[in-house]
Each structure stands twice: as C-alpha cells, then as structure tokens.
C-alpha cells in the first residue's frame, strides 16, 4: 500500500498540470482575501465568508472529483491496473494507496496556496481571525477529502476517462448546483411535518451541504437556520460535535473504500 501511496504522490507531484492547480488556488484565494479593502479584519460569518465558502463549493468538489476519478480511470484504461493485478495486492490496499497519495498531494497544494494567499493578504494589511482561518481551511480540506474519495470511487466504476469526466460533472452538478432544487421538488410532496427531518437526513447524504452547515454553525451563525434546526445547531456547537464529524468521515471513508474495492476485485476476475 505504501508503495502505491508513494508512487501516486510522486506521479502527481511530477505532473506539470498539478502546479497549475496550485496557481489556481493562489489566484482565487488571494483575490477572495483581498476582496473588500474597506474591511480591516475578516472574521465571523459575513458576506465575505459566505462568498469564499461558495466559491470553494463551486470549485473544489469539481476538481477533486475529476482528479480522483481520473487517477483510477487512467490506470484502468492504460492497462497499468492489469499489471498491478498480477502482484499479490488487494484491491482495498490499492485503492487506499491511490486515495492516500492523491489526498496528500492535493492537500499539500491547497495548503501551499492557502499559505501564500494568507501571506499576500497580510502583506496588503488584511487581518484574519485565527478561528476564522482554521474554519475556512478545515472546511476546504474537508471538501478535498470527501470529493477525492467520491472521485476515486467513481473511478473504479467507470470504463474510460471520458465516462469518468461525465459522471464526475454530473455528481458535482447534482450535489452542489441543483441539490436544493431537487430536495424542494421531492419534499413538496411530503407532508409538512416530514420536511425538517428529511432535510436533516439529506444533510448527511450530501457531504458538501454537511460541511457547509458545520462551517456556518462553527462560525457561530447557526441561528440563521431557524427553529427547526435549533437542536441540531446546539448539538453541533458543542465540543462533542467533533466526534460526530469524525464518525461521519470514518463511515463515509469505509463505505466508499469497500464499495470501490469490491468493484475492482470483480474487475480483476474479468
């Protein structure tokens, strides 16, 4: 597994296109941080925070889905996977290694971009609150984690890179762009009293929404969601919420890895 992990990391880091992603993070984040020169310090849940969160929600899931699915689909397509299959290596370890390598590489690129943008912001006299910075940083890292994971899973199911791209974009569009539209459409047929419980359940299905809600709550703005979510907000405000988040991440990770390794095992047999 560690060989795969190292190999994946090295291959990613040696691609030139990888550094264009780094450049993208620096550009986008710096621009966002420098937005609104009139504000001395960025903190709390304000329009700037909401804008940054939404831009992150637009870009990160899409890129990570494509990256994740391509890295697996590529090897399936060019025959490398068949080669690896001849080694005594389980699919679970293979997929974990791939994911781990990608995760480290992408997180490093994002961290670098975030660090440089912070420095640029500070250089231009912007202030940041430490709490705010951590909230946004962890939010983005969370997005990278969940959508790389989803991407790798998608990758193990597709036949070609082309298919990987289509499915990635579809998932992104579904979870980020039309999620509320779909839910409003479906819940329109549900009895009134079921709307809030179903919304809560749906929250756990969509990691993008899950992370967004956590971000808003952790920034102390959970009250904006209203009475229906008062209990949820109180729960997520407490320190024990990190346990809930950890369980959620772990569950998602296990489910996705198992799913894709089972699928890859079947492919090996073919």
């Amino acid at each position: 597994m560690w060989t795969i992990w190292q190999y994946e990391l090295r291959m990613t880091l040696r691609q030139r296109s990888f550094y264009s992603l780094l450049l993208l993070w620096v550009t986008v984040l710096s621009l966002l941080f420098l937005l609104q020169s009139s504000t001395p310090s960025i903190e709390g849940y304000t329009s700037i925070t909401a804008t940054i969160a939404n831009v992150a929600l637009y870009i990160i899931p899409l890129f990570m889905l494509i990256n994740g699915s391509f890295t697996v689909a590529n090897e399936l397509e060019n025959g490398q996977f068949r080669l690896i299959s001849t080694y005594p290596l389980s699919s679970l370890l293979y997929i974990s290694g791939k994911l781990g390598g990608q995760l480290v590489a992408q997180a490093a690129a994002f961290t670098m971009g975030f660090g440089i943008s912070l420095a640029i912001g500070l250089f231009f006299g912007k202030g940041f609150s430490l709490e705010w910075m951590w909230a946004i940083y962890l939010f983005c890292i969370g997005l990278i984690f969940f959508f790389l994971l989803t991407g790798v899973t998608v990758g193990s199911f597709v036949r070609s890179r082309w298919q990987a791209l289509t499915i990635s974009v579809t998932i992104w569009f579904f979870l980020v762009m039309i999620w509320p539209t779909v839910l409003i459409g479906v819940l329109g047929h549900a009895p009134y009293t079921w709307v809030s419980p179903l919304m809560k359940a749906a929250l756990f299905v969509n990691p993008a929404e899950f992370l967004r809600i956590i971000l808003v709550i952790k920034l102390g703005a959970g009250a904006v969601f209203g009475q229906s979510y008062d209990a949820l907000v109180n729960m997520m405000e407490a320190p024990s919420s990190w346990g809930v988040i950890a369980v959620y991440c772990g569950g998602f990770l296990t489910a996705a890895l198992l799913l894709s390794s089972i699928r890859l095992n079947r492919r090996k047999c073919q």
């Binding site: 909401a50 969160a53 939404n54 929600l57 637009y58 980020v176 762009m177 039309i178 999620w179 509320p180 539209t181 409003i184 819940l187 709307v195 809030s196 919304m199 929250l203 929404e209 967004r212 809600i213 808003v216 904006v224 969601f225 209203g226 009475q227 229906s228 979510y229």
Partner: peptide, 11 residues
C-alpha cells in the same frame, strides 16, 4: 421554515 437550512447554499 424547514428550507431555511438552504440559507446561502450555492444551489
């Protein structure tokens, strides 16, 4: 009011 969870959701 259940839909208030969508406050500022990109979607």
């Amino acid at each position: 009011p259940g839909y208030r969870l969508f406050f500022q959701s990109p979607g």
